[in-house]
Computed example of a mutant assay.
Amino acid sequence: MAGNGRHVAAMVRSHAAGDDANFYSVALQVAAREAKAGHHVLANDIKKAVDASREQKTVREITMLAQPRGELADLVQATYPDVRLRELVAPTDLVSQIKRVLAEQRQRSNLLEHGFTPAHRLLLEGPPGTGKTMTAAVLATELAVPMFTVRLDSLLSKFMGETASKLRLVFDAVAGRRGVYLFDEFDALGADRSGNDVGEARRILNSFLMFLEETSSESLVCAATNHRSILDRALFRRFDAVLTYSLPDARQATIVMKARLGTLARNTSMAGLGQYTSGLSHAELVKAAESAAKAVLMRGEKQVDRDDLIIALSSRRQASFD
């Protein structure tokens, strides 16, 4: 008993001092003592608790390290997403492109050693709500790096006149901190500025192109746009790959809704719903599924039926096309 008391006292002191390493060490000593006493279940529980705590602490530390500081904190938002590639509902060719980018990043040392640069500058284009931001999150998750989101619309309006210098700060971070950097609503910066070559907008775009050209392959730069047609043509040759997104077909729409509904749609037939899902994005389908689910749960039921989905989808279509 005296031995256990000393261990408890040591753990309390370690916790108070913020000495996690010593805290875990003492906890493992307790586990070893219990194992010797024949209390194997308790010893195993202690070891599992230590391992789980260490893993959680590592994730917290990584997330904290990812948070931008100083001027950069006003320009980008850092997150540490947990979205796997298998969760992205997209055409086979698009998924193959993403897999290729991931494979090249994982083999970047090998490619660089032979004089080849892995793909790291991506243009994501397509209608709103079709998976562009989710793709950036997938890349960050699969590569176990932070995701940094740059909102160019606010950057341009808040720092107009000094945007080029602020962009340099962002690209300095790209070079110094491995991650996935998402330039959201990219058309705010990349729209064709024909006839405005001497203006501030042209200088900003030229600065972006120069910074993009110089980026290290350690990080991925993703530019997302809903309006490819208005982008300056000079942009396209600066990206290693252009990933094109589209509205889901009937099969993909079913997968999206089933994934969001989970067990609520276990026995629900979704055949022939194409006329109701047509024209809706992935994000709108998720919203429709959520609406149907909430209606069912508030009725005290646990099964979404076909009529629930038709009502929710029709409402989304009306809102989208009005």
Rank of each mutant, 00 (worst) to 15 (best):
A2W: 02
A2T: 11
A9W: 00
A9K: 13
G18F: 10
G18E: 04
F23G: 08
Y24M: 09
Y24S: 08
L28Q: 12
V30R: 13
V30Q: 13
A32I: 00
A35Y: 08
L42V: 12
A43K: 14
V50R: 08
D51Y: 10
E55G: 06
Q56D: 04
I62G: 00
I62R: 15
P68K: 14
L72I: 05
V101S: 06
A103R: 15
Q105Y: 10
Q105W: 11
R106C: 03
Q107Y: 08
S109A: 15
L112I: 12
L112C: 08
G115Y: 10
T117S: 13
L122V: 11
L122E: 04
L123P: 05
L123Y: 09
L123G: 10
G126D: 04
P127G: 11
T133N: 01
T133E: 00
A137I: 09
L139C: 09
A140W: 05
V145D: 01
V145C: 06
V145T: 12
T149V: 15
V150P: 01
L152C: 09
F159V: 03
E162L: 10
E162N: 15
T163K: 12
A164V: 03
S165A: 13
S165P: 00
K166C: 03
A173N: 14
A175Q: 15
R177K: 12
R178D: 01
G179H: 07
Y181E: 01
F186C: 01
F186S: 02
A188W: 08
G190R: 13
D192H: 14
D192C: 00
G195V: 09
D197C: 02
L205R: 13
N206F: 06
N206H: 10
F208R: 13
F208T: 04
M210I: 01
M210P: 00
M210C: 00
F211N: 08
L212H: 12
E213H: 12
E214P: 00
S217H: 13
A224H: 05
N226Q: 10
N226E: 05
H227M: 10
R228Y: 04
I230F: 01
R233E: 13
R233L: 07
A234G: 13
L235N: 11
D240V: 06
P248M: 11
M257V: 09
M257T: 12
K258G: 09
L261M: 04
T263H: 01
A265P: 00
N267T: 12
N267Q: 14
A271S: 15
T277N: 10
G279L: 08
S281P: 03
A283V: 06
L285G: 10
A289I: 05
A293T: 02
A295M: 01
Q303Y: 02
Q303L: 02
I310H: 06
S314P: 01
S314V: 09
S314A: 15
S320R: 15
S320E: 12
F321P: 05
D322T: 14
